[in-house]
Amino acid sequence: MSVFIDLVALLGRLLEPVLDESATAAAIVLFTVLVRLALHPLSRAAFRGATPVAGILPVLLQLPVFFLMYRAFSSAEIGGAANELLGHRLFAAPLGDRWGEALGEGGLFGERGLVFLGLFAVVAVVAAWSAARGRKAAALMAAAGGAGGGIAKPGGAKAGGAKAAGAKPGGAKAAGIVAGGAKAAGAKAGGPKAAGAKRSGAGGGGAVAGLTAEQQELMRKVGGVLPLLSFGTLITAALVPLAAGLYLVTTTAWSVAERAWLQYRKDRAERAEGAVSGAERSAM
């Protein structure tokens, strides 16, 4: 723990000429950014879905750091010596203060209370941003499950005329498809099964091969509830020392911004790939 305290103290001394009493608070934010930069390759791998473990590791690796931050600003002594970090502040609030202590030193709108209210406001904005992105992602996944997951249409094979993978009605055999009895990848004309999706009743309305209607509805409901869990950060920030709350809000904001940036890069790459494919098809 002493190494951690020494590092934060060093960063604070470097920032002190500019930020004065709030230098250590800024050092905590800077330290958090350095931790997240070190974990960025894992976060990128998790976003790509490289391995299931990759999504858990960034969270697990931050737990010891958060614990050290909590202990460093909760202990009056470290290694038998006075804890120098407890004397530092963010504006009027000591970094070792909790919200309950701030309320006892001037109430909700006292000098210390206002610092915590500012922290809570930032946490709420980040949580709302995270919740909005979570709902949007859940809606897109549900829509993709319904539309792209395989609503079977009666054509990769047409009933009675069976055109599938180049099969011509009337007799030609192509890619193993026999017109008039059309079988292509297991699809039968007049009762087509394409990639395991069964043709539904009248008009071939289409059954969802990827997600059923019930699964899509469940996905929407879960997608509406899970993002709200990000507001639980507010409760945590109210219970831990102010320094730990700073770490929490910084790493949470980083996570949301990082995921938004990775999604933006992925969408841009897909658009560029689609434009190239379109240009190649036009050239042909």
Score class of each variant (00 low, 15 high):
192 P>R: 08
267 D>V: 15
93 A>T: 03
138 A>V: 15
43 S>A: 11
235 I>A: 04
194 A>R: 10
19 L>N: 00
11 L>Y: 00
35 V>K: 10
102 A>H: 05
80 G>M: 12
138 A>W: 08
76 A>K: 00
150 G>K: 03
169 P>N: 07
11 L>C: 07
121 A>N: 01
47 F>R: 06
258 E>Y: 12
172 A>F: 01
125 V>K: 10
274 G>W: 02
40 H>V: 13
4 F>V: 09
255 S>L: 01
238 A>T: 05
119 L>H: 07
52 P>E: 10
278 G>N: 09
67 F>V: 14
153 K>N: 11
250 T>N: 03
200 S>M: 13
35 V>A: 12
31 F>Q: 08
45 A>M: 12
254 W>A: 03
79 G>F: 00
74 S>A: 08
17 P>L: 04
187 A>W: 05
95 L>V: 09
103 L>M: 14
219 M>V: 04
37 L>D: 00
72 A>V: 08
167 A>C: 15
157 A>T: 14
205 G>A: 15
177 I>Y: 05
173 K>D: 07
198 K>P: 05
170 G>S: 11
122 V>Q: 11
262 L>G: 09
244 A>W: 02
233 T>N: 06
27 A>M: 02
82 A>Q: 14
2 S>D: 03
79 G>D: 15
17 P>C: 09
207 A>F: 13
118 G>S: 06
70 Y>P: 01
266 K>A: 02
205 G>R: 15
179 A>T: 13
252 T>K: 01
93 A>D: 10
40 H>E: 14
261 W>P: 09
152 A>L: 07
177 I>C: 04
28 I>M: 13
153 K>W: 10
131 A>Q: 03
261 W>I: 10
190 G>F: 11
64 P>M: 05
42 L>Y: 15
177 I>H: 08
97 D>R: 02
271 R>D: 07
208 V>D: 02
264 Y>V: 11
199 R>W: 14
240 V>Y: 02
250 T>F: 01
198 K>Q: 11
212 T>N: 05
171 G>M: 09
282 S>L: 13
274 G>H: 12
236 T>A: 02
159 A>L: 12
48 R>I: 08
246 L>D: 03
92 A>H: 07
144 A>R: 13
9 A>I: 12
154 P>T: 13
78 I>V: 13
125 V>Y: 11
104 G>Y: 04
13 R>S: 14
62 Q>E: 15
189 A>T: 09
146 G>R: 11
17 P>T: 03
147 A>I: 15
83 N>L: 08
219 M>P: 01
24 T>D: 06
